[in-house]
Design a protein around this nucleic acid. Structure first.
Lengths: 94, 94
DNA sequence: GCGGAATGTCAACGTTCAGCGGCATGCAAT
DNA sequence: ATTGCATGCCGCTGAACGTTGACATTCCGC
């Protein structure tokens, strides 16, 4: 359980909160523990994990950094969700 | 110029602002145009593109959505640049 | 150079945030 | 059942946000 978390696609603040929570748990950190390392308060982290849209992006970035979560922005070209494993492996996608 | 923007890795709010600006220009949108579509004010967008760390994440997400920029969070485990195909093909969640 | 558009920036205002302290709930282990 | 920890939530305060409207500056085409 909570062993490994793959690439997560985020669209809303709820997604973001869920992703942070997952990553935190996969590192076996408590909210208080993560908050301390990221320099935020536990109350704030709790609200963020629950999808607060008004949270400041700078604090979010610090938190993701502590969680070793890299943020990649990619133009929505021909891709649909996550990465295109088929194309990656050379599967003929018709 | 401003033809295509590849995947951008973001660590700070400055990176984020730069990425947004790049994507906006690649779509040949003005700040006013993008702001209108994203439901934000031009003043806010200007400050965000200049790296304001206190911006609300919800508005950022709306903006990225309009720009067709997908957000991927990926655990920075043994990875270096791209993703680890070996691990990808060998995942065993058990 | 000129003119217009795009962008940066400022002040005032109302709104909302983050921090703090505390308390209630839920869950697991004893 | 009781203890302990993790988490959610409340009120309060001070600080910072976002909006509006305006003005200054920069950029780009002509």
């Amino acid at each position: 359980m909570f062993k490994y978390v793959g690439i997560m696609r985020v669209r809303t603040s709820r997604d973001l909160g869920a992703a942070i929570r997952q990553a935190r748990r996969s590192l076996r950190l408590t909210q208080a523990g993560l908050a301390a390392r990221a320099g935020v308060t536990r109350t704030w982290l709790s609200s963020v994990e629950n999808g607060k849209p008004g949270a400041e992006v700078g604090m979010i970035l610090r938190t993701l950094d502590v969680l070793d979560l890299a943020i990649d922005l990619q133009p929505a070209g021909p891709r649909h969700g996550g990465f295109d494993l088929d194309a990656l492996l050379g599967v003929d996608d018709g």
